[in-house]
Amino acid sequence: MVLVASGSSLNGAMMVAQYLMKATGKNVITITPESILAGGALIDEHSFVIVISQSGASTNIIAALKYFQDEGIETVSLTGNIESPMREYSDRIFDYGVGNEYVDFVTMGVQTLVEFFLMFGLALGSDGISESTLKDLGNTIRDQDTVINTAEAYIKKHKLQLAQQQPAFFVGNGPNYGVAKEGALKFQEALKRPAMYYEPEEFLHGPDMQLSPDYTVFLLDDLNTASRFDEVFTALHLITPNIHFVTSRYFSEKVPNDVINIPGASSSELVPLLTLPVIQLISAEMADIGQTWETTPFFAEFDQKIAIKTQDYQKELKSIQQEWEKDQQK
């Protein structure tokens, strides 16, 4: 199975790739359209190719679809808008249930995509959909309310620390590596703040050497007992006070001041459903507090020169925003 995506859609695909491999017993790779066009994967007519774009209007995604079409490779497209330009180049196209958004970068789409693929994996699994698996998934989704309340309380308590504009690291393993990548992206998009993402051991093999007391590090814990998050968390305090540890390790114990303590998931594959909302909420609320949503006038000129969406995309965004504003007034 090949998942082709870009930006937040790629990050969501990375969060579920391990789960899909376990559910289907098949190899799953995530890859960008650029890598496809550069010949970065062995894909042929026997490959099961899923192309993902919430807007359905990303020019690089459409370029990849054209490539597959020219090569005689069938594709299945997932989008929030089945009437979007990618429809013309897709063999089959499905709405994965999120719709489109009027902000110019994804917010709801990642979470919805992860939930879609979890259900997709259940349906494809060789053992079918078991009651226990559905129960675990349902419990994890219900725990998101607790996660949001916990994150909001943490933001209120640490907002001055979180408001710093110095570089940030996001560190995560397995499915949480996709969350780390999404966290860095959201800090760049919403907070206009330099941010990087790594797996823990990669972080410890060089990138950590640039740390100084004003750097921020987000540690996204998982259920992998081989990972050294607790050791890294303790050691980082020797360099910087700006550490935020998203974990369930302290759920029944006294919680340290810089820990965002969330409920535990039944498996590591479900952990992104609990860690992702924390990062999204921090990014959104700190962007509101810091008033960092707007880009500079220089970027507006750049954006006009380098189009990443099809021609009518901005008109569609305005239409969606107007509909949303009407709904809010009702």
Rank of each mutant, 00 (worst) to 15 (best):
Ile148Ser: 03
Ile148Leu: 15
Thr150Asn: 07
Thr150Asp: 01
Thr150Ala: 12
Ala151Trp: 02
Glu152Met: 10
Glu152Tyr: 08
Glu152Thr: 03
Ala153Asp: 12
Ala153Pro: 00
Ala153Met: 14
Tyr154Thr: 06
Tyr154Glu: 01
Tyr154His: 01
Ile155Leu: 01
His158Lys: 13
Lys159Asp: 10
Lys159Ser: 13
Lys159Met: 09
Gln161Asn: 09
Ala163His: 11
Ala163Met: 12
Ala163Trp: 07
Gln164Phe: 11
Gln166Val: 05
Gln166Ala: 14
Pro167Ile: 02
Ala168Leu: 06
Phe169Ala: 04
Phe169Val: 05
Phe170Glu: 02
Phe170Asn: 02
Gly172Phe: 06
Gly172Gln: 08
Asn173Met: 07
Asn173Tyr: 10
Gly174Leu: 05
Gly174Arg: 03
Pro175Cys: 05
Asn176Trp: 04
Asn176Pro: 12
Asn176Ile: 08
Tyr177Pro: 02
Tyr177Asp: 08
Gly178Glu: 04
Val179Tyr: 03
Val179Pro: 00
Ala180Pro: 07
Ala180His: 08
Lys181Met: 10
Lys181Trp: 03
Glu182His: 06
Glu182Tyr: 00
Glu182Ser: 09
Ala184Gly: 10
Leu185Ser: 04
Gln188His: 10
Glu189Tyr: 07
Lys192Ser: 11
Arg193Met: 13
Pro194Tyr: 04
Met196Tyr: 15
Tyr197Glu: 09
Tyr197Lys: 09
Tyr197Gln: 10
Tyr198Met: 06
Tyr198Glu: 00
Tyr198Trp: 13
Tyr198Cys: 03
Glu199Met: 12
Glu201Tyr: 14
Phe203Asn: 04
Leu204Glu: 05
His205Pro: 06
His205Glu: 01
Gly206Glu: 09
Gln210Ile: 15
Gln210Gly: 10
Leu211Pro: 04
Ser212Trp: 08
Ser212Met: 07
Tyr215Phe: 15
Tyr215Trp: 15
Tyr215Gln: 09
Tyr215Thr: 01
Val217Pro: 01
Phe218Arg: 08
Leu220Met: 12
Asp221Arg: 06
Leu223Thr: 02
Asn224Asp: 15
Ser227Arg: 11
